[in-house]
């Protein structure tokens, strides 16, 4: 069995599990539980939450034969960041999901771009902003300007993780970023 990894990360309830479910070939192995007593204040105004991803959620995409891509959702809690490093090694890339309804999504963007800096530098990262319909501010323009100030150039998209097309678009951008010469094989 040949195995690869794509990571989905982001703060609590940013849509990581939904995003995996949108593209996974199997039902997501979900470990969501009510964990409000375990939610930490990361300095972004997080004080409570009804449920949170405590343990990694998992899905996969079969590439055919004995080859597959594991889709991992990281726990959205920095106490588990030792797991992020382990996952990052050898990963195809990372999809960073942010929730625009939260108090400081821009600070969270800084945090996750920094936490996955190794992949960001190698153009193996894409950023998706969730819940922009109901919460249009900060605008995508603000995120783009912020990324420009950080001298980071990753694709930044408005992304509804429940929409498979949105998630596939983000994943395709992740692949083309690494190799613009990539072309789809004729069917």
């Amino acid at each position: 069995m040949i195995e690869h990894t794509i990571i989905f990360t982001g703060p609590l309830r940013s849509g990581k599990t939904s995003a995996i479910a949108s593209v996974s070939d199997i039902p997501v192995v979900s470990t969501q539980e009510v964990t409000s007593d375990l939610v930490l204040d990361l300095g972004f105004g997080i004080t409570q939450d009804k449920s949170a991803t405590l343990v990694m959620d998992y899905g996969c995409m079969n590439l055919g034969g004995e080859e597959r891509i594991h889709l991992f959702a990281t726990p959205g809690d920095e106490r588990f960041d030792f797991m992020w490093d382990a996952l990052t090694e050898g990963a195809i890339g990372v999809v960073i999901l942010l929730d625009n309804s939260r108090r400081s999504p821009l600070k969270e963007m800084d945090f996750f771009l920094n936490a996955f800096g190794t992949l960001v530098e190698k153009r193996r990262a894409v950023l998706g902003i969730n819940r922009m319909e109901e919460h249009p501010i900060p605008t995508l323009r603000t995120y783009q300007e912020r990324a420009g100030l950080l001298e980071v150039q990753v694709p930044i998209f408005e992304l509804d993780p429940r929409q498979p097309k949105d998630v596939r678009t983000a994943l395709r951008a992740l692949l083309y970023s690494q190799d613009p010469g990539l072309v789809q094989s004729p069917v």
Binding site: G64, E67, I92, P164, R168, L171, L182, S185
Partner: peptide, 16 residues
């Protein structure tokens, strides 16, 4: 990684 990326891309298009 081109070969792997291409297989992944093809998988996404098949999904589409």
């Amino acid at each position: 990684q081109r070969s792997l990326l291409k297989r992944t891309l093809n998988r996404l298009f098949r999904h589409e």
